[in-house]
Amino acid sequence: MTTTPQKAAPRRIILDCDPGCDDAAAILLAAGSPDVELLALTTVAGNQTIEKVTSNALRVLRVAGITDLPVAMGARRPLIRPAIEAAPEIHGETGLGGLTQEELPEADIALDPRPAAQLIVDVVMREPAGTVTLVPTGPLTNIALAARLEPRIVSRVKEVVLMGGACREGNATACAEFNVENDPEAAHIVFEEPWKVTMIGLDLTYQARANAAVRERIRAVGTKPAELLSRILDDYAENYRVWRGFDAPPLHDPCAVACVIDPTLITLRPAPIHVELKGALTTGMTVADLRRPVKGECHTIAGLGIDVDRFWDLMIDAVKRL
Rank of each mutant, 00 (worst) to 15 (best):
Met1Thr: 13
Thr3Cys: 06
Thr3Ala: 14
Pro5Glu: 07
Ala9Arg: 14
Pro10Ile: 02
Ile14Met: 09
Asp23Met: 01
Ala24His: 05
Ala24Ile: 01
Leu28Asp: 13
Leu29Asn: 05
Leu38Cys: 08
Leu39Ile: 01
Ala40Tyr: 03
Thr43Tyr: 06
Val44Ala: 13
Thr49His: 13
Ile50Met: 07
Glu51Tyr: 10
Glu51Cys: 02
Ser55Leu: 06
Leu58Asn: 05
Ala64Phe: 04
Gly65Thr: 07
Pro70Arg: 01
Val71Cys: 05
Val71Phe: 04
Ala72Val: 02
Met73Tyr: 00
Ala75Asn: 06
Pro78Gly: 10
Gly92Ala: 03
Gly98Tyr: 01
Leu99Thr: 01
Gln101His: 11
Glu103Ala: 10
Glu106Cys: 13
Ala110Ile: 09
Pro113Thr: 07
Arg114Leu: 14
Ala116Gln: 13
Ala116Glu: 01
Ala116Ser: 15
Arg126Cys: 14
Arg126Asn: 15
Pro128Phe: 02
Val132Gln: 14
Leu134Tyr: 02
Pro139Leu: 00
Asn142Ile: 00
Asn142Asp: 12
Asn142Lys: 02
Leu149Tyr: 07
Glu150His: 13
Pro151Arg: 10
Pro151Ser: 12
Ile153Phe: 02
Ser155Leu: 06
Ser155Ile: 02
Val157Lys: 00
Glu159Trp: 00
Thr173Gln: 08
Glu177Asn: 07
Phe178Ser: 12
Asn182Gln: 14
Asp183Gln: 09
Ala187Gly: 12
His188Ser: 14
Pro194Leu: 03
Pro194Cys: 11
Gly201Pro: 08
Tyr206His: 15
Gln207Glu: 09
Ala210Cys: 04
Asn211Trp: 00
Arg217Met: 04
Gly222Pro: 08
Lys224Gln: 15
Leu233Thr: 05
Tyr236Pro: 00
Glu238Arg: 11
Val242Glu: 10
Trp243Gly: 13
Ala248Gln: 08
Pro250Ala: 08
His252Lys: 01
Asp253Phe: 00
Pro254Gln: 04
Pro254Ser: 06
Ala256Glu: 10
Val257Asn: 05
Ile266Thr: 15
Ile266Ser: 10
Thr267Leu: 11
Leu268Arg: 15
Leu268Asn: 09
Arg269Leu: 15
Arg269Ile: 13
Pro272Gln: 05
Ile273Pro: 13
Thr282Glu: 11
Gly284Lys: 04
Thr286Asp: 03
Leu290Arg: 14
Arg292Pro: 00
Val294Gln: 04
Gly296Met: 00
Glu297Asn: 07
Ile301Ala: 11
Ile301Pro: 11
Ile306Tyr: 06
Leu314Ile: 02
Ala318Phe: 12
Val319Lys: 10
Leu322Pro: 00
